[in-house]
Design a binder for these strands. Structure first.
Lengths: 114, 114
DNA sequence: CGTATTTGTTACCTCAAAGTAACTACTTTT
DNA sequence: AAAAGTAGTTACTTTGAGGTAACAAATACG
């Protein structure tokens, strides 16, 4: 953040690429093994197919995932992380850990409210 | 991500709180020292005062920052990180590092394009 | 032949987030 | 009296992200 200014701030750059509402979630789901379009949709049901498509396209464009399409029928398409995005996994894990702490706190506060 | 499902996913919880477009940036700027409203606005010029206000209010509500108002004239208001959000700083630092790598790659790719 | 499956696309609509600009309140300086 | 500086708020408008629903293509199955 000490950097020049707004423009070339690395954090801003990173957020441009992974700042989407669903992208961290998608990347997290791909961390263990490649997943198909339909699997991702099942894992994140609140995410519509249209938006899932667009997020996957953007992630592919930015080279955070690769798309492997198998000429089977019915068609099968798998998405997997690239080396670039594998480095993000521990970051999202930390964030997840922090989120868990948030949930705990929330439960405590709810208790105190009663 | 292995967790139950969508609802209580810790990463989703975390993203609810820090997922805002500007929040990671604001938190990063506060990491070294408390900052005033106007300072933050100068540091992130693309962020309008109205939105800065709303983001600061949300962060305060979620107890990621505290607001200290001094009865001087002209008024002075300082925002500082709480213990809760200080744990986020290393996460954003990693993300920033990753963003720097992105920028480097971009430069290399531009060179290759020529 | 008609239906199901899978991975999308396309068109249309909606709503919340963000932008703009004007106004407030308090006090010091000119 | 008026302007300047700080930290907002309020009202109005705009933008774009996201939702819904229908359709496409290829093949297998009954």
């Amino acid at each position: 953040m000490n950097e020049k200014n707004h423009e070339n701030c690395p954090l801003t750059q990173a957020l441009l690429v992974i700042g989407g509402k669903w992208k961290p979630l998608i990347i997290s789901h791909l961390q263990k093994s490649p997943k198909r379009f339909g699997q991702l949709h099942t894992l994140i049901p609140k995410l519509s197919r249209k938006v899932l498509t667009s997020q996957l396209q953007e992630l592919t464009r930015d080279k955070l995932i690769t798309r492997h399409s198998y000429a089977e029928t019915p068609p099968r398409v798998e998405y997997r992380l690239t080396e670039k995005s594998k480095e993000l996994v521990p970051i999202f894990q930390s964030m997840s850990k922090w989120g868990m702490y948030l949930i705990d706190k929330k439960i405590i506060e709810e208790r105190e409210d009663n």
